[in-house]
Design a protein around this nucleic acid. Structure first.
Length: 262
DNA sequence: ATGTCACAGTATCTGTGA
């Protein structure tokens, strides 16, 4: 049975419950992975989502920061979480659908402003987080697995509005892109979105600070869907719902979709 | 390109994170 999955950094699930409901109503993915819920799990507004058919949820949360959740129409088993880099943050949760597909939902640390771990501890934490992801997937080689989330890195030149102008901007520096590639290689992961849409500029995030985000279009592709090598060929119909960036009280991220014939 | 958001804590603003 094919299923459609979406990933969306929601930047407060409680404040944006209306647009989560809008996405579920209008696009109806089978599974929606959220990041930056900024809510303890018990305060996530699950009732409205359940009323739309999303009766299953696995989540990790903390007050005010981070937080990840997987809303699902399909039953999903909680496989636990990993505290990569020992930060004590709610940045990962894994689940398994009844067809055996494992879903990893990640919110990788943003990394602060200065791309130098000697003067910016947050940048070091981001690199360490990615290194721990690499080591984990090297030891636990993923099978029949999907990895999604806000990875806070735009790896390709055509994943940013200006490669040259962003080379020293956190999210697109060479050291981050190298770590990103190391995680992919360690897990044998395939970039589903770029396998489907190999050419052209592709963004999933536009800053709140731009006067007119749509016209300026200074975006970055920070949100990703990966598949393990054994199921990579089952993925298709990738898209980024740019419209959602223009909805009422929007997140600064747009949802990314893919469908899997599994 | 220092601009706009969201949240905690204390409070009706300041600091932090993104």
């Amino acid at each position: 049975m094919p299923f459609t999955l979406a990933t969306w950094n929601i930047n407060s699930v409680r404040l944006r419950e209306p647009i989560v409901a809008k996405l579920l109503s209008e696009e109806a993915p089978d599974v929606l992975c959220l990041q930056e819920c900024k809510s303890p799990v018990e305060k996530i507004p699950t009732e409205g989502f359940a009323a739309l058919g999303y009766t299953h949820m696995i989540a990790r949360g903390q007050k005010g920061y981070n937080g990840v959740a997987i809303l699902s129409k399909l039953p999903i088993e909680d496989l636990g979480d990993k505290d990569f880099a020992g930060l004590g943050h709610a940045r990962h949760v894994a689940g398994r659908l009844e067809n055996g597909t494992v879903i990893h939902n990640f919110y990788v640390p943003a990394g602060g402003d200065v791309p130098d771990r000697k003067v910016n501890e947050k940048f070091g934490q981001k690199l360490d987080y990615l290194t721990d992801m690499r080591d984990w997937f090297k030891s636990e080689r993923p099978e029949k697995s999907i990895l999604v989330g806000d990875l806070n890195i735009a790896p390709r030149e055509d994943d940013v509005w200006s490669h040259k102008q962003l080379l020293k901007v956190v999210s697109h520096t060479p050291i981050e892109v190298e770590h990103f590639g190391d995680v992919m290689e360690a897990g044998g992961w395939s970039d589903v979105t770029r396998a489907d849409i190999p050419k052209g500029q592709l963004y999933s995030w536009w800053s709140y600070r731009a006067r007119d985000w749509d016209a300026a279009d200074k975006g970055r592709r920070l949100d990703h869907i990966w598949a393990s090598a054994d199921i990579a060929s089952a993925a298709h119909s990738s898209r980024i719902l740019r419209d959602a960036r223009g909805w009422e009280k929007p997140s600064d991220h747009a949802p990314v979709f893919a469908t899997f014939d599994l």
